[in-house]
Design a protein around this nucleic acid. Sequence first.
DNA 1: TCAGCATATAAATAAACATTTATATGATGA
DNA 2: TCATCATATAAATGTTTATTTATATGCTGA
Lengths: 133, 133
Amino acid sequence: MGKIKKQVLNDIPNSTPWNPAEQNNAVTFQYQLDDDHLQSAAFLARSLSDSNRLRILLSISGGKKSVSAIVEELDLSQPLVSHHLKELKRSLLVKVEREGPFIYYELSDARILDVLRILSDVATDLLSSRKTF
Amino acid sequence: MGKIKKQVLNDIPNSTPWNPAEQNNAVTFQYQLDDDHLQSAAFLARSLSDSNRLRILLSISGGKKSVSAIVEELDLSQPLVSHHLKELKRSLLVKVEREGPFIYYELSDARILDVLRILSDVATDLLSSRKTF
DNA sequence: TCAGCATATAAATAAACATTTATATGATGA
DNA sequence: TCATCATATAAATGTTTATTTATATGCTGA
């Protein structure tokens, strides 16, 4: 079954020293996640909490795309795509670039894909081993 | 007004097999993230989108804790903690265990901590040029 | 049985959110 | 300039959500 490669997590840049420890197939970090960090994480998680937004993010993860290209590819209405792009811009998850009448959007940090991969894996595992509930 | 059944993680279809073929060459992706997986990821992300819920998750990430212990530690009202724990249980992110009058909750998958770490790091980097979102 | 503690649930409220429909803004070429 | 395409914004709507207050349920010892 699919597990994300560990070196993806090891590649995470950070300025704090850390001691990884194995637990449940995950690298647990022992440096602190204070309330401010949790609030930032919650804010970004909120941006990732809509599946249409995730479809958009994935669509622009391989390179910049115009709004109309996204609209056609995902079969969503143009105002809806613009709305979600605005939200994603607010959370700095996309880079914007104008070229003539076109406006191009692009995923600003590829680690978001790692997050989505982990969440998807976790969901799969939780659903297959839900013996507890 | 027609009541719509609240979505639980189990409701999300996960029967689509992994596709070992690679098509997204931007990042080290091993499997396809199809719409079902994105929906699962969005569902879990939604559970992580509240900072009080993240504080609770972090609080029970090192081992099981009773509701009252969480309440005291985080200085939140008991109904609020119970409410959030119910949401976390709905998304299978916590394990529950009764012991006499006490009910213990525990993080069910440590990879969630990796997700929070990454999100926090990404937020820090994205915000490096400003103060808040 | 009852009292008391631990936890869950219900009800109410205000805010946030996703989506649709309609309209506005802005760039480009004729 | 005008017409048209690309995108953004506004308004409206129904839904979800976080939180508070109040009450109910469940367990245990006396």
